[in-house]
Design a binder for these strands. Structure first.
Lengths: 216, 216
DNA sequence: GGTTGATGTAAGAGTCTCTCACATGAGCTG
DNA sequence: CAGCTCATGTGAGAGACTCTTACATCAACC
């Protein structure tokens, strides 16, 4: 997809680009995917967009602001993906919960640039207000799902939903960081990250009295 | 502690530094701790060591090689810390296993510069041979501990020790990355990362038939 | 005492960030 | 339609960093 006004190649005829902001965000995604968050530079993004190195500063105060915008959009897509996977607990809560975990890893795999901007760029979240909220929305999906899952448990054995969500988030994030995002040359696993996470979640749920049996 | 030959301040009288390599590694730790892996520069490290910007290149081929050396030493300290915490399963395997988890988080908290170099610098591990081995030694502690923990279980219900170690490593790493290493302004937790991890590990062990009861 | 090799410096080419003054032209206003 | 205005782009440049090359220093060894 192209973001230039001409809709064609990257040759621009008019003085003004017409859609530079989007073109820069697109370029950032490419560069981050290729080289990690540190591999992205304003200068290179400007080059990809076909403008001078100073032009991006009309749209972003500095490189961090551009990365933060990528991260923000990433969190929104991430939250959407998690919501689709959870699908309001259908076909049944346990299955939907597993789909949620797979969606987490899938996002890390399919959208490495967003994932890197969100979790590996070390952005000061408080400096970019929307970021925190977008992250909270994504986490909220997991929290609501946890709440729903344990809803059927008797009060005495019911764990705090927040704690449960934090456990699942942490394990998903750990697996994604260590085994999905790591270089391919990295330590070989005896199973796919997806299977590893599914087994971990099932064991965790078992200890709560949910998902008692092994998967059919 | 000072790494100059004079053992005193950072004023050097002789032409040669005497211990530049160590001084640079020390400077890198300071800079990474202060500004993250991206905040470290060869030029600034040279300045801290009191040498010209070109001098570091006598000891490290480039900035990545210096970071990799920091990461390597970090993994060694990390493995040592984990081994001390496990303490060969004393006083009993379950308690020692919990101590292992606390040691993981403690390392992330107490040694942020090493942790950042190890896990946040995106080093190409295959380019620095010792790195992979050092990381494997640290993981090996967790793996051996898992093996020992499940050793008492009947064969039929015994999970693969490797999988178990990967689950614990992932949850520990996830909690460390998300809640120990995150900026202090970050989302407030209902409990400390240490308690969160301990609860998660206990639940996990419960589902395996270990650590059946809640902690006294 | 002289030589040599490891370790330092000075200088510089190339790149990046970010700023400032100036150029362009799309859209509004009369 | 003429003219104005302002968002958006350019050119030039200061300051910082990376890494290289040629040269300087000096500790250790013959």
């Amino acid at each position: 997809m192209s973001w230039t006004r001409q809709g064609g190649g990257h040759e621009r005829r008019s003085y003004h680009h017409g859609n530079l902001r989007e073109a820069l965000l697109e370029a950032a995604l490419q560069l981050i995917a290729a080289n990690g968050p540190a591999g992205f530079t304003i200068a290179e993004a400007a080059r990809l967009a076909g403008v001078s190195p100073a032009a991006p500063y009309r749209h972003f105060s500095d490189a961090g602001a551009l990365i933060a915008e990528v991260a923000l959009r990433g969190f929104e897509r991430f939250a959407d993906a998690l919501e689709r996977a959870w699908n309001d607990g259908r076909p049944d809560p346990v299955r939907a919960f597993e789909a949620l975990g797979r969606a987490y890893l899938s996002f890390a795999r399919q959208e490495p640039a967003y994932y890197a901007a969100m979790f590996e760029a070390r952005i000061a979240a408080e400096a970019y207000p929307g970021l925190q909220a977008a992250g909270d929305r994504a986490f909220g999906v997991l929290r609501d799902a946890s709440e729903r899952l344990i809803g059927d448990l008797p009060r005495e054995t019911r764990p705090p939903a927040l704690m449960m969500a934090l456990h699942i988030w942490s394990m998903s994030h750990g697996i994604a960081s260590l085994f999905v995002r790591a270089d391919p040359s990295r330590r070989k696993l005896p199973m796919s990250p997806e299977d590893l996470l599914e087994a971990g979640v099932l064991l965790y749920l078992q200890s709560l009295g949910l998902a008692g049996a092994k998967k059919p």
